[in-house]
């Protein structure tokens, strides 16, 4: 009976050691980050302004992109045309907007942001 008690204590000790290891290996959750939302808002701003003022030329779009997203690379899509700004990266956020052109045709603008 005493031996069983000792075995139980040893098992409990082992269980405690495992619990400590599990707790130590658990990382607390990352703090919530609003950066993706902020970037999305700015992408949306660019698209809305471009459509609202009349679609600018691709070089002007590229200039606006560099001004709104300094230090970022990305890609601007205007229907089937694309302009690369900087080097692509693996982590990409894309936002697009559809609009009715004066001719009545449906147009599409998109901004891909590499982070």
């Amino acid at each position: 009976m005493d031996e069983r008690g000792l075995y139980f204590s040893l098992e409990a000790l082992l269980g405690f050691a495992v619990l400590v290891l599990v707790l130590l290996s658990t990382k607390p959750a990352e703090a919530p980050d609003l950066k993706p939302l902020y970037l999305l808002q700015k992408q949306h701003d660019l698209l809305v302004v471009w459509v609202g003022q009349g679609i600018p030329s691709l070089p002007e779009m590229e200039s606006d992109f560099r001004r709104v997203f300094p230090g970022f690379s990305g890609r601007i899509g205007f229907n089937d045309e694309f302009v690369a700004v900087g080097e692509p990266a693996s982590n990409a956020f894309t936002e697009s907007i559809y609009y009715a052109a004066p001719s009545g045709a449906l147009g599409r603008l998109s901004i891909t942001l590499y982070d």
């Binding site: 005493d2 008690g5 139980f8 204590s9 409990a12 269980g15 405690f16 619990l19 707790l23």
Partner: peptide, 21 residues
């Protein structure tokens, strides 16, 4: 004596586990 030692050890382990949590 053996039982008391065993009980003491179990209580210590219980306390340590609670402390870690």
């Amino acid at each position: 004596l053996l039982f008391s030692t065993d009980l003491l050890l179990a209580v210590v382990i219980l306390l340590l586990t609670s402390l870690a949590g």
